[in-house]
Design a protein around this nucleic acid. Structure first.
Length: 322
DNA sequence: CCCTCTCCCCGCCAAG
DNA sequence: CTCTTGGCGGGGAGAG
């Protein structure tokens, strides 16, 4: 089988830690005979050195032309605050990314999602980024369905991860997707990280993305999280927020990038996943405690979110032992 | 799988 | 004049 070509696109102020991750986690993947499965190289737009977030300079393997032969392009985060806003991403970089996306899988880590979004690669898709930048991302890119609570999002040929170390989770997921669990577990072992995070891929609902204090709907979101198990209507939320339903939905979209119901459903899915991962509570009870009207509803939403049934999901994380 | 009913989403616009 | 609010209604999604 031909080596899978990976090109890391390093940009100025690129986060050093993340820029090295593909070499470790994709470059470190091997088949059962010990042969590497990916070749990882690093490119900068003009082939010249860039200065990383750590201050040292990085000399790449080549320029943007390297991306032509890439099966997967990885865009690590950039740290030059407040770069990048869409109009600060150079047109030629946008063109390079668009071309790359038309023939390669594209993966971003952390604020790399801002670069992908600026190139329009995330329009109409689901994506994530570092939680600290989620609200800004939602404001800048309302056309992207942002899921700020997950470690990564696999949207097929475009994959995005949360901040820094979440890149590890995503790259392991890529290996798992390409070559199966055994190969991914082997890389994880070699790099001395857990094959997946304790608690699975979702972050815990009990320590959700910190809501920006004072921002319009943060208190209401917090409030809703504490009564997820009960039926909540837009009227309920608006009443708590002290505004009209119209203003509430408007603020929700501005601050979370989502409509209230979509946000609520997402939180419920998170809670359900958490319960499936950590307890043996029956699916009916999980549905109830997560605020779904029925097990059917839970099944539907879980399937839409991650493509598996509740019991299959639980089996993945709790094992089929005993 | 389909049907019906309810609730939601969001562009639009007038008012504050 | 600009910004925010909130009521309305068509189109649509989800529940049962």
């Amino acid at each position: 089988m031909a080596l899978h070509e990976v090109v890391v696109l390093a940009l100025d102020t690129g986060i050093a830690f993340e820029t090295g991750l593909p070499h470790a986690f994709l470059g470190g993947a091997q088949d059962e005979t010990g042969r590497p499965l990916y070749r990882v190289r690093t490119a900068t737009p003009d082939g010249g050195p860039i200065t990383t977030s750590a201050g040292y300079r990085l000399l790449p393997d080549g320029d943007a032309a390297l991306l032509d032969g890439a099966d997967t392009v990885v865009v690590p985060g950039v740290s030059g605050w407040p770069w990048p806003t869409p109009d600060e991403v150079p047109a030629d970089l946008v063109a390079v990314l668009r071309a790359a996306a038309s023939r390669s899988r594209v993966v971003s880590i952390c604020t790399g999602a801002f670069v992908l979004a600026a190139a329009g690669l995330l329009d109409g898709r689901t994506a994530t980024t570092h939680w600290m930048h989620a609200e800004r991302f939602a404001r800048l890119h309302p056309q992207v369905r942002l899921d700020p609570d997950v470690l990564f999002v696999d949207d097929g040929d475009v994959l995005t991860s949360a901040g820094n170390a979440a890149g590890i989770d995503l790259l392991l997921h890529v290996v798992r997707r390409d070559h199966g669990n055994a190969v991914a577990a082997d890389v994880a072992r070699r790099r001395v990280v857990a094959p997946w995070r304790t608690g699975g891929q979702s972050q815990f609902v009990d320590r959700p993305v910190p809501v920006e204090a004072g921002s319009g709907t943060s208190a209401t979101r917090e409030w809703a999280l504490h009564r997820l198990d009960r039926a909540l209507t837009l009227d309920d939320l608006a009443r708590h927020a002290g505004t009209s339903v119209r203003t509430l939905t408007r603020h929700f979209r501005e601050e979370t990038g989502q409509s209230p119901l979509r946000w609520l459903t997402q939180q419920r899915v998170h809670r359900a996943r958490h319960l499936l991962e950590t307890t043996d509570v029956s699916v009916d009870r999980v549905a109830e405690q997560a605020g779904f009207g029925s097990a059917t509803s839970l099944r539907q939403h879980l399937h839409a979110a991650i493509g598996v049934s509740p019991l299959a999901y639980r089996r993945t994380y709790r094992g089929a032992s005993d």
